[in-house]
């Protein structure tokens, strides 16, 4: 069943622990993201924010609790291709040259099962995704001939080509020049307006702040804040996760899923 409506749950973590080699990096976290939401997952280096996203994608094992994504436990999704993913890497890494078209077409493959070939409609989607990131005129060029920022945009286009219901991005603005960051914010605003759920892992929201309404702050493997982005980030979009003593971390759970914005503690927002 792929039908969905705004308000349905896109991502649900309940008492979830995620980590590697049986060592939880994210511990006993609760989080609910509804379809159509645009959420920033903030945190300093090593806070566990990337591990959280990797757990949703099935790239880091869930060690305890429940993690559901688009209505199914992680890794059990019936129709692949409903999730878009932009990894943290800056560049496309393959040893053999590939064109923009070839890389972005990969984003379409997961929707097609094991044997179906790309059809006209798929090629149109690929073309639209590349146009959306402003690289339509570079379609047949080898990726290696593009700048770092452009290569990042190719990876965004690859994720968009699947026309995903949920788009997960890991540090999409890191190492990208200001113009490309603005362009990315524009693309994400359009995608979000079209109903795609966005989950952006980042240590600074930058221009994306205009798109991301809600923020979750991950601190030492736990969610220390869940509420409007404005409450988590200072005006510059810089986010600082200071070593604020918060022994009990009271109420970081979202016990009432209908409440999507619930500040747990202020993170420098009041200064």
């Amino acid at each position: 069943m792929t039908a969905r409506s705004p308000g349905d749950v896109a991502v649900r973590l309940h008492d979830a622990s995620i980590g590697y080699d049986d060592v939880p990096i994210v511990a006993r976290v609760d989080l609910t993201v509804r379809h159509g939401e645009a959420i920033a997952v903030l945190g300093s280096n090593g806070s566990g924010k990337t591990t959280l996203a990797r757990g949703l994608l099935g790239l880091a094992p869930v060690l305890g609790g429940d993690v559901e994504i688009l209505g199914a436990p992680v890794g059990r999704l019936r129709d692949p291709g409903r999730i878009g993913y932009v990894p943290q890497r800056h560049t496309v890494s393959g040893a053999v040259p590939a064109t923009v078209r070839e890389v972005v077409s990969v984003g379409r493959l997961a929707r097609l099962g094991l044997f179906r070939r790309l059809r006209a409609a798929d090629r149109v989607a690929v073309g639209e995704a590349v146009a959306a990131v402003g690289l339509a005129d570079r379609m047949e060029e080898p990726i290696a001939s593009l700048s770092g920022g452009q290569q990042r945009r190719v990876l965004v286009a690859r994720a968009l080509a699947a026309q995903p219901e949920l788009l997960i991005m890991d540090e999409p603005t890191a190492g990208v020049d200001a113009a490309s960051q603005d362009a990315l914010a524009e693309v994400l605003a359009r995608v979000s307006a079209a109903g795609t759920t966005l989950l952006v892992v980042t240590h600074e929201t930058g221009p994306l702040a205009s798109v991301l309404a809600r923020a979750v702050v991950v601190d030492q493997g736990r969610i220390s804040y869940d509420g409007p982005l404005a409450g988590a980030a200072s005006g510059s979009g810089e986010h600082h996760c200071g070593p604020v003593a918060d022994a009990g971390r009271p109420g970081y759970r979202l016990d009432q899923p209908t409440v999507t914005a619930r500040p747990v503690r202020s993170l420098g927002g009041g200064r």
Partner: peptide
């Protein structure tokens, strides 16, 4: 080309 991406999607 990108095993991790392939697994994620």
């Amino acid at each position: 080309d990108d095993e991790e991406y392939a697994r994620a999607v």
